[in-house]
């Protein structure tokens, strides 16, 4: 599940990763190999690649019913270009506020309501704060994509 706005430069790094992953996944399905971008092949095929938004409950509703989910998102709280993968449980649980309930709290709520919720890991990619409108990524964030892509494929193949 990639989050972000592809029309807001680095904010859309998660979507950019997902779209590249889609190409690799499709190529891997066809040939069992990676693609010319030298990424590793995706060996686990029962996956879905989704694009989404920030909101906790809507995000939780969209991923309810799956077994495992990797959420890929831009992280202005990380140095630009840094890639970090961690469990959702490492994020602070936050009280509900305005539109966002926090993914952790929202999943907990869905579980309380009897919904099947997935185990979630986060793949965060550091971006500079306040990205402007536009397409494409800054060099630092573009440079981090291969690392992040490998991490996503590692997760998929685990």
């Amino acid at each position: 599940m990639a989050l972000g706005n592809p029309y807001r430069t680095d904010d859309g790094v998660g979507i950019a990763l997902l779209r590249r992953l889609r190409v690799i996944r499709d190529a891997s399905r066809a040939t069992g190999e990676g693609t010319t971008c030298h990424a590793s092949p995706v060996t686990r095929h029962e996956i879905e690649l989704l694009e989404g938004v920030y909101d906790g409950l809507r995000l939780a509703e969209a991923i309810a019913g799956y077994e495992e989910v990797l959420v890929v998102d831009a992280a202005p709280w990380l140095p630009a270009g840094e890639v970090l993968r961690f469990d959702l449980g490492d994020l602070p649980a936050r009280a509900g506020y305005l539109h966002g309930l926090g993914l952790r709290a929202a999943l907990e709520a869905l579980a309380m309501a009897g919904e099947r919720v997935p185990t979630v890991e986060i793949l965060a990619i550091g971006i500079p704060g306040d990205p402007p409108f536009g397409e494409g990524l800054s060099p630092a964030v573009e440079g981090a994509l291969p690392v992040a892509l490998e991490e996503a494929i590692r997760w998929l193949n685990e």
């Binding site: 706005n5 807001r8 909101d55 966002g100």
Partner: peptide, 21 residues
């Protein structure tokens, strides 16, 4: 403030899933 269900989110998103005030 909340009575209006205001949306400060246009053009931005916050991973922790909140719209802080």
């Amino acid at each position: 403030f909340r009575a209006y269900d205001p949306c400060l989110a246009c053009a931005t998103h916050f991973f922790p899933g909140e719209m802080p005030l």
